[in-house]
Design a protein around this nucleic acid. Structure first.
Lengths: 388, 388
DNA sequence: CAACTTTCGTCGGATGCTCGACAGAAGTGA
DNA sequence: TCACTTCTGTCGAGCATCCGACGAAAGTTG
């Protein structure tokens, strides 16, 4: 039995007595004591008072100590950056954001991230060493294993830039890099659908993308480009796309495409934001356009449902905040076009976390690493050696 | 260090000396001896002669003993059943097949399987207890965890039939049940692409389906229906499908659809077999039809490439044996329609194993279970207790 | 054939994890 | 207040695993 196995029981934050843990692990109470002591000395676990007496001396309760370490989550968008400091339970301690264009390049963007993270940590009044892991999402294809963006279309100067190494060197903590839609999917799953193992998050904004969690794991594919919905062909569409092909989903259902369609109706619509505003105001044209975008999305998602067979599709991104129409259009087509067996238990829902999803996912990625069995058992071993 | 960890080093079949194993594991040579002895007593490992002397007593070599146990693989098709007995290296020891319709129902089909497996094992002259695991693929959606088919369209009477339990009870071995296309994908990956972690197998025959291996794991989805390509909509097609929808891939690119198209050209084509025969004979109509089927498949596979980002697509099924045209049509469209980044290192190849792929995958599934750390360490522990 | 080299098989001791026992602490109930 | 209950902390014993050492075995070299 490893110390980390016992810790896994306490990860949920619920306080437990030693006897409970002994029953759950099959160990003797004295062995549980040894493991709990080790975890307590590392700080990961702390006593939280006594349980109610059952007629004798009350048992003392132990629970995850969220403040044992700090982690950070970073969401780098096309034109903004969001940083969040969180504890090990995922509770946000401090946030910061700025409007910085990702096209400014890695040095500028990551420079701001480093400064901001350092400032937020200092502001918590703790040592910089308390920060043990940082998760970061970037708006483009990322090779997760190496922590580098690969030929990202909207990130000039980032190709094969060693993001993980750059941040690790300056912040002295583990760094996990992933695609921004992937971390949104992770964030949604962890906050809103914890019991779901097969979830797809679709982000609909200036671009369109999907994060796929299957069998409880993020699917990244061979080059880290899995889930790229934007340039999938929509049956029946011949719209020209900036990628050079015809009929791409982005060319009909993304923010700019909808805006262009509304302009043809004589409406004054500059970009995605105006589309959302119009729809919220109840403009019939905007509502109709969103419904149609939903149907086009539905055509592609119907394919995705057949291929991936998720149990939940979450729709996020700025356009998801424009009302029910987009979701209604999606549902209409998906339930008609996908296999009955695959849609039988399928739920389609709007994102609840929205703007936070990405940064929550980045935090989740960081916590996952910080509390991984490898890291934990290594620390426990070090402690044993030091105290001998 | 578990005994199974050391065994993992020997799984590839290459003979090794104790010193080599000691270096690889970091253990002392005497500790390696203890583990190797345990494995040898269980039969999984056996001495295979001596290494060349380096100036002193030659070191003795140990290697996986494939004959330590037997496994079985079963491929249940729509109208045939294939059974293969194999050793732990995956080498076939005996095979049997019959033409039995899966619609005859589970009792008839599984009855034949049980009889045949028993006969093959007896024919090997070994005890029935030597058979430790059986993998079986069924032509429909399967809930892998419970080992039951779920609403399979072409398997009346199989819905929620406890295939795993039925076989386990009668054969006394572990039973792994999966979809037939999934096990084909596993078979292809294990035999032809062992180093590839992201592989998609497309089966094109009477129906069309895909088995998706991503991150080294079979993707089954929430209900076990992942990879269902057959009823994905093909852009530009309005063909009526037996499922009730319009434009399904099966309605244009599967065997029956191609046969129907050729009949319209006045050719005498009854079914899939005739299509293959015509194409092989060089009929221009058949060749053209297959090329077009390939393009239609390519449209759908282009989507799959964007969503899943595999590094290899293998095309199997009876129609893949009709020449290069199908593959050419697929490649033509996929490389044009998918994201450049996703196709950069993508390979599209014809299945090499063909008829064997499914049964090879079933065998692989069985071996995987038989040699899993859990099973191995449990046996090692039992041995330790028995010998004390 | 003898000296040398390298591995083999075995064994005792060290280490680390686990268990059960026991006395003391901290509650409850009459 | 006192008997009773239940948990806590600690400790020695048991057990498995690992290591290094030793003489014997089995080659090579001159």
């Amino acid at each position: 039995m490893r110390t980390s196995e016992l810790f896994d029981l306490l990860r949920d934050g619920r306080p437990r007595t030693r006897s409970e843990l002994a029953r759950a692990t099959g160990l003797a109470r004295s062995s549980v004591t040894a493991h709990v002591d080790a975890l307590a000395r590392l700080g990961y676990v702390a006593p939280v008072g006594d349980a109610a007496s059952t007629g004798g001396r009350p048992a003392s309760l132990f629970a995850l100590n969220p403040r044992a370490r700090l982690v950070a989550g970073v969401d780098v968008g096309a034109t903004h950056i969001l940083v969040e400091l969180a504890d090990l339970a995922g509770a946000a301690l401090a946030t910061a954001r700025t409007d910085l264009d990702v096209a400014e390049g890695p040095e500028a963007v990551l420079g701001w991230v480093v400064e901001t993270v350092r400032a937020l940590v200092a502001q918590q009044g703790v040592d910089a060493g308390e920060l043990v892991a940082l998760g970061i999402g970037l708006p483009g294809p990322v090779e997760h294993a190496s922590g580098m963006p690969i030929s990202p279309p909207i990130m000039p100067g980032w190709h094969r830039f060693d993001v993980a190494g750059h941040l690790r060197e300056r912040l002295g903590c583990a760094v996990l890099v992933d695609n921004d839609v992937n971390i949104m999917a992770l964030g949604e799953q962890r906050t809103a659908w914890p019991e779901v193992d097969d979830l797809v998050l679709v982000k609909v904004a200036t671009g369109i993308g999907a994060g796929i969690i299957s069998g409880g794991r993020l699917q990244r594919g061979a080059q880290g480009t899995a889930g790229d919905l934007g340039h999938v062909r929509v049956p029946g569409s011949e719209a020209e796309c900036r990628c050079g092909n015809l009929g791409c989903l982005e060319a009909v259902a993304a923010g700019p495409a909808i805006a262009a369609a509304l302009r043809e109706h004589g409406l004054e619509v500059a970009g995605t934001g105006d589309v959302v505003a119009l729809a919220r105001a109840g403009s019939p044209e905007a509502v109709r356009a969103l419904r149609q975008a939903g149907r086009d999305l539905g055509e592609v998602l119907a394919t995705l449902v057949n291929l991936v067979n998720p149990s939940v599709i979450v729709v996020g991104g700025r356009l998801a905040g424009a009302g029910e129409e987009l979701l209604a259009g999606i549902s209409e087509v998906v339930y008609r076009r996908s296999l009955p067996l695959a849609t039988e238990h399928l739920r389609i829902a709007a994102s609840t976390t929205q703007a936070d999803a990405a940064v929550r996912g980045a935090v989740a990625l960081a916590i996952e690493h910080a509390l991984s069995p490898d890291v934990l058992d290594a620390e426990a071993r070090e402690l044993a050696i030091a105290s001998a």
